[in-house]
Computed example of a mutant assay.
Amino acid sequence: MSSLSKRLSGKTILITGASSGIGRSTALEFARSSPDSLRLILAARRLDSLKTLASDIGTEVGNGVQCLPLQLDMSKHDDIVSAIQNLPAEWKNIDVLVNNAGLVKGVAKAPEINAADIDVMFATNVTGLITMTQEVMKIMTKRGESGQGDIIMIGSIAGREGYPGGSIYCATKAAVRTFTDALRRELIATRIRVMEIDPGQVETEFSLVRFGGDKDKADAVYKGVEPLTPDDIAEVIVFTAGRRENVVIADTLIFPNHQAAATVMHRKS
């Protein structure tokens, strides 16, 4: 058994946005990394997709990894609170939270940005993430002498630099970044690790959602480039969670080879 597998063994891990993209790949990577004793709480809006993921994990790694599909809309505060408070007893002791759920809507620029798009991006990417973090922290702070656990935020290069047509999404990810930095300082006297992973361009359903299901527009985003895959980010997330407890991979920025900034990319003709 590898050191990574030993460190993750027996843990309960909650992944938001687990039905697709980075969240789905992260669940699979955790299962593969510690297949003998692991609990995965898979949270997302699409319950059918979560059940399929749980089945796929069982088929690949066997019964050592238990999965709990949890239908959850991260834009709804009360639903998050209820979901965590009403977890079955054997699932309540969450060791690792992967705050992955997030979305982007549209490419409008001020003053043409749709109010509903603003609301859903902030409710999901910021308020929902903070609510989930606070609920899970109530569990983590009671563990050990001073509190113990991992909180992993999936941010974005968009949280480090704004770009045209992404002002609201960038603002939400900047909020996540600042919240994460403050939280790490607030929890310095505990054994709770607060870590952020910021991907650059990754090919997921992200662009499809942004363009309202227009596949041609979504595909154009990745034309002439080789974006990161969800598996690339999942490997970093699991690596981060699997370090020795005293090691905090506080801040990670990940680009594909053709990218140097949010809007600086080399596209092959």
Rank of each mutant, 00 (worst) to 15 (best):
L228F: 12
N63Y: 11
D36S: 12
K105S: 06
L253A: 05
P88F: 10
D150R: 10
V247F: 08
T26P: 00
I254E: 08
A115W: 11
D73C: 00
K217I: 03
L103N: 09
L8A: 08
E205R: 13
S269C: 08
Q66D: 09
E145K: 14
L97C: 01
P227S: 00
L40C: 02
G23T: 08
D79M: 04
M140N: 10
I57A: 06
A171D: 02
F179E: 09
V96G: 03
K142E: 14
M140T: 06
T12N: 05
E245S: 00
D78L: 06
I113C: 01
V202P: 00
G165H: 12
S55M: 07
P227H: 01
G155H: 07
E186C: 05
D216H: 12
L38H: 09
A262F: 13
E145T: 06
L97P: 00
S3R: 14
L14Y: 10
F179Q: 09
V238I: 13
D36I: 09
A158T: 07
S207H: 10
R39H: 14
R193T: 01
K215Y: 08
A83E: 03
I249R: 09
L228H: 11
E145W: 00
A260K: 11
L8N: 08
I41Q: 00
F30C: 06
L68C: 00
S75D: 02
V104W: 09
A43C: 00
L70A: 01
R243T: 11
T204R: 11
D231T: 11
G147Y: 13
R184C: 03
F255P: 04
K105P: 01
P227K: 05
V120F: 05
A175E: 10
V107P: 05
R193P: 00
I152K: 05
I130Y: 12
S82H: 13
T141V: 15
S55V: 03
V209N: 11
S146P: 00
A27P: 01
F122P: 02
M1A: 13
F30W: 13
K76E: 15
I57V: 15
S9P: 03
T52G: 05
R191F: 02
A261Y: 14
D119N: 11
R243Y: 10
V236C: 00
T124L: 04
R244P: 01
F239H: 14
V96T: 07
